[in-house]
Computed example of a mutant assay.
Amino acid sequence: MKELYVRIQQKQGAARFFRCGIEFTKAWKRLEAVDAATAARLEAEQMLEVSETKPAELETHAPNEADPSGASTVATDSGTPAAAPTTGETAAKLNEALGGQAVPEDPAVRLEAIRAAIGQLSKEDAALWTAGGKPKTEAIAAVTGWPVTAAERDAATADVGAQ
């Protein structure tokens, strides 16, 4: 596992780009614990600029200013990022958008809620599951009451083998 700094090539016109289930922008994003397969795929992507060392423009800033929220992104063995932490501000906005319904701020609590929601899904209802056997994020969100990303679903099911 290694740490990478990744961003969209500055010459590219795209403002957002997704690879390996991770969103990239023109700003550097620090990825921790990236497995070899994911690192190889990111390094081979022509749209991206990848560095194993902290870029010079980040050296004079806060320790993790590649991600202004102060959180790092951890890629799992499947190449998908672990669940993104929900900051207090983000959770408050999401709670407001959902009509005051509580969205867990703590990533561990959020993942546990996602695991519990997955456990409530009927294995017999094919509409709730992907062709690959994973629970659909929309089905999980219907139980939790707040949006769930594929990365969060994958992180929630990674250590329990529930797919």
Results as ranks from 00 to 15, higher is better:
Leu4Gln: 08
Tyr5Val: 00
Val6Trp: 09
Gln9Arg: 15
Gln12Leu: 14
Ala14Asp: 14
Ala14Gly: 02
Arg16Ala: 07
Cys20Trp: 02
Glu23Thr: 14
Phe24Ile: 07
Lys26Met: 05
Lys29Asp: 03
Leu31Lys: 05
Leu31Glu: 08
Asp35Gly: 15
Asp35Val: 07
Ala36Ser: 10
Ala36Glu: 14
Ala37Trp: 04
Leu42Asn: 04
Gln46Gly: 10
Met47Asp: 02
Lys54Phe: 03
Glu57Ile: 09
Glu57Arg: 08
Thr60Cys: 02
Ala62Asp: 11
Asp67Ala: 13
Asp67Thr: 12
Ser69Lys: 13
Ala71Pro: 00
Ser72Gln: 03
Ser72Ala: 04
Thr73Asn: 06
Thr73Ser: 08
Val74Met: 01
Ala75Val: 15
Thr76Val: 03
Asp77Tyr: 09
Ser78Thr: 13
Gly79Asp: 08
Pro81Arg: 11
Ala82Ile: 05
Ala83Val: 08
Pro85Met: 05
Thr87Cys: 08
Gly88His: 06
Ala92Asp: 14
Ala92Trp: 11
Lys93Asp: 11
Leu94Arg: 10
Glu96Pro: 01
Leu98Phe: 03
Leu98Ala: 09
Gly99Pro: 11
Gly100Cys: 11
Ala102Asn: 14
Pro107Ala: 05
Leu111Arg: 14
Ile118Cys: 09
Gln120Trp: 01
Leu121Tyr: 00
Leu121Met: 04
Ser122Val: 00
Glu124Val: 00
Ala127Met: 00
Pro135Lys: 00
Lys136Leu: 05
Glu138Cys: 00
Ala139Lys: 00
Ile140Asp: 01
Ala141Val: 04
Val148Trp: 06
Glu152Asn: 05
Asp154Asn: 15
Ala155Ser: 09
Ala155Trp: 08
Val160Ala: 05
Gly161Thr: 10
Ala162Thr: 09
Ala162His: 07
